[in-house]
Measured scan of single mutants.
Amino acid sequence: TEEFVRLWREAVRHNQTLHWNGTDFIPGDEWAEEFARREEEKL
């Protein structure tokens, strides 16, 4: 979602874990980066 992408970019900028829907998205984590890339492509 647009909100997820916005929060993810913020988390990456501050190198912080994003807690989203009970899942931890960690900047630099391969799975999280791939998920975020797919979400961005949907926008």
Rank of each mutant, 00 (worst) to 15 (best):
E2K: 11
E33G: 03
N15V: 04
R9E: 14
V5A: 04
R37I: 05
A36Y: 08
L18V: 06
T23D: 08
G22Y: 03
F4S: 00
R37C: 14
L7V: 02
Q16N: 10
W8A: 05
E10W: 08
L7Y: 04
E40H: 09
T23P: 01
V5L: 15
L7W: 04
E40D: 05
R38E: 08
N15G: 14
G28C: 10
R9I: 09
F4R: 00
T23W: 13
G22C: 10
A11H: 04
H14P: 00
L18F: 08
H19L: 07
P27T: 01
L7T: 00
E30D: 13
E40L: 14
E39H: 10
N21W: 11
E30M: 12
R38P: 05
L43V: 07
E30L: 13
A11D: 00
F4A: 00
E39D: 02
E10G: 00
L18G: 01
F35V: 09
V12I: 10
E39W: 13
E10T: 02
R9L: 12
W20E: 01
R6I: 10
E2G: 11
G28N: 05
N21V: 04
D29M: 08
E33H: 08
E34D: 13
D29G: 02
E2H: 13
A36R: 01
E2L: 13
V12D: 01
R13M: 15
D29T: 11
R6C: 15
H14Q: 15
D24W: 10
T17R: 08
E3N: 11
Q16H: 09
E30P: 15
R9T: 06
L43D: 04
T1M: 14
L18Q: 01
V5P: 00
R38I: 12
Q16Y: 11
A32V: 02
F25G: 00
N21E: 11
W31I: 07
H19Q: 09
R13E: 13
R13W: 10
Q16C: 15
W8S: 04
F35Y: 14
L18N: 01
N15R: 10
A11L: 03
E40C: 14
E2N: 11
W20L: 05
R38G: 10
F25L: 10
